Simulated scan of single mutants.
Amino acid sequence: MPPTMNRPLVGAIAVVCHRDRVILVQRGKQPSAGMWGFPGGHLELGETALQAAARELFEETGVTARPLGYLTNIDVILRDTHGAVAQQYLLAAVLCDYQQGTPQPADDAAQALWMPINEFETCGLPLLDQVAEVAHMAQARMHNR
């Protein structure tokens, strides 16, 4: 591992499910530049994952949403060309209730949009691991509210 990273980092992603759509952003920076996933980022000291998800959502898209609770955790382990761990993250996927705003890319996002959940399999976008699975999980949770 690089000397600057000797332990996994903790982050949060905002899974905003509204009218059977979720907000996705295209990553503008490494890691995963060009890939599509949920808005999110690192937790700040003293911040809960729920707070971080709402903050990152607003910073990356301008959308406000109320965190409802945790959906799942996602382990992300990125390896270099030799197979050594280059970066590792534990991401808390936070289900959020849409309040207002139209997704506009800002901060680390190159693009932002509402993606219909039933189009994940045919959208042709390069998705990060588990995005479709987490979107379906959010949709089921919102329908059971």
Rank of each mutant, 00 (worst) to 15 (best):
Ala106Ile: 00
Glu59Ile: 02
Ala14Arg: 05
Glu119Pro: 00
Gln30Phe: 00
Thr64Lys: 06
Asp97Asn: 04
Asn73Arg: 10
Ala52Arg: 07
Arg55Trp: 02
Leu90Val: 10
Phe58Glu: 12
Pro126Ala: 08
Ile117His: 09
Leu24Ala: 10
Ser32Gly: 14
Leu127Met: 05
Gly62Ser: 12
Leu45Cys: 01
Leu128Glu: 13
Cys96Leu: 09
Val94Leu: 08
Asp129Asn: 15
Gly83Thr: 03
Asp80Phe: 01
Pro103Cys: 11
His143Asp: 14
Met142Tyr: 08
Glu44Lys: 03
Ala92Ile: 07
Ala33Phe: 00
Thr4Cys: 02
Ala33Ile: 02
Asp20Met: 00
Gly101Phe: 06
Asp108Cys: 03
Ile23Gly: 07
Ile117Trp: 08
Leu78His: 01
Leu128His: 11
Val22Ile: 15
Met35Arg: 14
Glu121Ala: 15
Gly40Ile: 06
Lys29Arg: 14
Leu125Met: 12
Ile23Pro: 01
Ala54Glu: 08
Asp75Ala: 11
Ala110Ser: 15
His82Pro: 00
Leu128Ser: 11
Phe38Ser: 11
Gln88His: 05
Thr72Asn: 14
Gly34Cys: 10
Ile13Phe: 10
Ile23Thr: 05
Gly101Arg: 12
Ala109Pro: 03
Gly124Arg: 09
Gln87Gly: 04
Glu121Trp: 04
Gln100Glu: 15
Leu113Val: 06
Gly46Ser: 06
Thr81Pro: 06
Leu91Glu: 06
Phe58Gly: 00
Leu125Ala: 12
Phe58Asp: 00
Leu128Asn: 11
Arg21Ser: 13
Phe120Arg: 07
Gly28Asn: 15
Leu50Ser: 11
Val63Ser: 05
Ala49Trp: 01
His143Gln: 15
Val16Asp: 09
Leu125Asp: 11
Ala93Ile: 09
Pro8Gly: 03
Arg55Thr: 00
Glu56Ile: 05
Gln104Ala: 10
Leu90Ala: 02
Gly69Lys: 10
Met5Ala: 11
Leu57Trp: 01
Glu47Leu: 02
Thr61Ala: 04
Gln99Ile: 14
Val134His: 05
Gly83Tyr: 03
Gly46Met: 06
Leu127Val: 13
Gln26Asn: 03
Glu47Phe: 00
Ala138Trp: 07
Met1Ile: 00
Asn144Ala: 12
Ala14Thr: 12
Thr61Glu: 02
His82Gly: 08
Leu78Lys: 02
Glu59Val: 03
Ala49Ser: 11
Gly101Ala: 11
Asp129Ser: 14
Ala14Gly: 08
Glu60Arg: 07
Ile13Ala: 13
Pro3Gln: 03
His143Met: 14
Gln88Thr: 00
His143Tyr: 09
Pro3Gly: 00
Glu44Gly: 02
Ile74Thr: 04
Tyr98Ile: 03
Thr4Trp: 01
Gly28His: 15
Glu133Pro: 01
Glu60Asp: 12
Thr48Val: 05
Thr64Ala: 07
Gly11Phe: 04
Val22Thr: 13
Glu56Lys: 01
Thr61Met: 05
Met142Arg: 15
Leu78Asn: 05
Gly40Thr: 10
Gln87Pro: 05
Cys123Asp: 03
Ala93His: 08
Glu133Gly: 10
Ala52Thr: 06
Gln30Asn: 10
His82Lys: 04
Lys29Tyr: 04
